[in-house]
Design a protein around this nucleic acid. Structure first.
Lengths: 287, 287
DNA sequence: AGAAAATTCATTCAATTCGATCATTCTACT
DNA sequence: AGTAGAATGATCGAATTGAATGAATTTTCT
């Protein structure tokens, strides 16, 4: 834990503007040190003292332990993934939430957030789990926390325009990974699509029924695991044919889709990343 | 989402003058925090608490970030289940959301909301699905919508007190129904517990590991389906023994727990409804 | 070590909120 | 009907807040 904090960190942690915080420092409400150049530095103990004596609420506790740079730089993003992983494994939902929100509010697109922070974090969590470094409940708890946060981020997206095209999607039966279809849904919503996520374990037949019922312009399919390749490909072909019949595009993605499997498949777009999905969807919408 | 609101925002939202609102704050009718400069800040959860308990109408929901038509109509909890079912089957998420919020703001406890509206609605949806009246995707979409709304309601609960006891829970492997453990989590949080939901498909061993790691005071187990009774009971007994070893209570619930099966089980409490769970948890907390 | 990028500085300015006071409306009781 | 007491809404000057500015400082790279 860091000892000295910048005014910005403290301002964010207690939920006031930097200007007000500095005024409080100058009024002596907070113990303040100064660098040789005149910049304020606030010892953590003094901040805690202030919180105790003034009764001021602590809005964002996680910031007090976090590095100050919340930007878009590569290193920042990498560190964010590690941080997210640690917070998720520890079940520190507040910390994870505030870090994710920071990244979003600092202008990172949701699809990039998913690609560069959340997906890597869960890849690592998956690794930890396979190597027995963490328990299953930690992985499940992490999913719950992340899902909650994603749902909250969804609320922060701008309202859809009336002419937003419809996309439906999810994962076929046998695929238990709920997060990636939610991430795909969010990426599409961010790109202006009315994306409906059906979740995991959707039989192909009901996908086809949905295609004819709600007539989407796009079907997104998240493929995290394929228990048995040959029948899966057959099922996919059924879906693809149904989509083509109603003029819907099909985008597939997910780490189970190896190059070999993809060679067998016919699709409108294969998306390596959620960013790919978003750009593809934007292009499709324009046409 | 804004955590803290200014008196002006709240005054506009509930349709009274700022002067009156400030008097109410000073009389303790609304939970109020103050900035170092003496300005009032009102946490959203406290405002909602006030609205729910006082029955005061909500004039301008948009200010609080709520759906635009909450607080408008008289929503009776009796017909609500049917309405919710229709909206969920149709994928009308906004409609479902605003109706659920209405019920919440009208002072209905979350556990009652789950018991009297959401659970019946999903029972009916399950029936419709079994009789082929709706497609699988409609049921899954309904789950997604409901889960999102539950997560949103979670944000509206007042902050946990520092001494809130810890509860963990979820559903054992083989149980696919995610909603009920989330409802249990919410009911417990409303009752002042720091409830952590691990979700579905938790192996018994990792439950035991969690018991020794995080040392909860309560384990809640949601049982919607039991694929094979005898081994399930064995697994449960392992869990129960581990809980007893660390002094944790065990509450079970769910429609798969028939009377026959319950006779075989040893537990601290069997909860027919989420209301039962809440009252049991409150009693346990008091001791 | 040096340059570029990011952060923080002090200050100003418009908007908001403070506490207090006053006229009006509502309610309960005789 | 009449009145006392309480709650409401409006208004006031003083104080607080948050955003923006250009200059100075710190951090992060090469």
């Amino acid at each position: 834990m860091r000892e000295l904090l910048t005014p910005r960190q403290v301002a964010q942690a207690i939920g006031v503007s930097e200007a007000s915080l500095k005024r409080w420092c100058d009024r002596g409400l907070l113990l303040t040190q100064k660098t040789a150049g005149g910049h304020r530095r606030l010892p953590l103990s003094g901040v805690l003292e202030f919180l105790r004596t003034s009764g001021h609420p602590l809005i964002d506790p996680a910031v007090l332990g976090l590095p100050s740079n919340v930007g878009k730089g590569e290193t920042v993003i990498n560190r964010a993934a590690e941080h997210a992983q640690r917070a998720l494994e520890a079940g520190a939902d507040e910390e994870f939430r505030s870090e994710t929100f920071n990244l979003f509010l600092n202008g990172n697109a949701l699809c990039d957030l998913c690609d560069k922070v959340l997906a890597p974090a869960f890849r690592n969590i998956g690794n930890s789990w396979e190597h027995g470094r963490i328990e299953v409940f930690q992985e499940r708890r992490a999913c719950e926390i992340c899902l909650r946060t994603l749902h909250e981020l969804r609320l922060m997206l701008p309202a859809l325009s009336a002419d937003a095209p419809l996309a439906i999607g999810g994962a076929l039966s046998g695929d238990p990974y709920v997060l990636s279809s939610t991430m795909a849904e969010l990426s599409l919503r961010e790109a202006g699509w009315r994306a409906e996520n059906f979740g995991v374990g959707i039989p192909v037949e009901t996908f086809c029924a949905a295609l004819t019922t709600v007539k989407p312009k796009l079907v997104f399919l998240s493929v995290s695991t394929i228990p048995d390749v040959a029948p899966w490909i057959e099922r996919y072909k059924t879906l693809r044919a149904a989509a083509t019949a109603v003029g819907a595009a099909v985008s597939v993605g997910g780490r189970a889709l190896t190059e070999e499997i993809r060679r067998e498949l016919d699709y409108t777009a294969y998306c390596d990343t959620f960013r790919h999905l978003a750009t593809f969807a934007t292009a499709l919408r324009a046409s």
